[in-house]
């Protein structure tokens, strides 16, 4: 067994997900099945093979640093669950 319930809880924490006990158990089984299948990749010798992150020969794409019209504050906040004084509102970070 590669992934344990504890691993799943740790990863859920990294991913900012709250999983129910049932979900944790279900994901432990399913992730193990998927990763076991993915272990197939180890059949391949890849020493010295360059990783492909991207198929196009594109690197840093630069543009001129010019001022453009951007969204208004009203537009930026249009979908905010909560806002106040032109800012996104969230619970206090510090007590």
């Amino acid at each position: 067994m590669g992934i344990t319930v504890k691993d799943v809880e740790h990863v859920a924490n990294l991913a900012r997900l709250d999983l129910s006990e049932q979900e944790t158990e279900q994901f432990t089984g399913q992730l193990n099945a998927i990763l076991q299948y993915a272990d197939k990749l180890n059949e391949l010798e890849t020493t010295g093979v360059e990783p492909t992150s991207h198929v196009l020969p594109l690197f840093n794409v630069m543009r001129d640093d010019e001022v453009h019209v951007s969204l208004s504050i009203e537009e930026v906040l249009a979908n905010a669950p909560e806002e106040e004084d032109g800012q996104f509102k969230v619970p206090a970070v510090f007590e």
């Binding site: 993915a38 391949l44 990783p51 492909t52």
Partner: peptide, 9 residues
């Protein structure tokens, strides 16, 4: 990284 290398292959 392994998956990215296999992508190359």
């Amino acid at each position: 990284k392994k998956a990215q290398q296999v992508r190359t292959l």
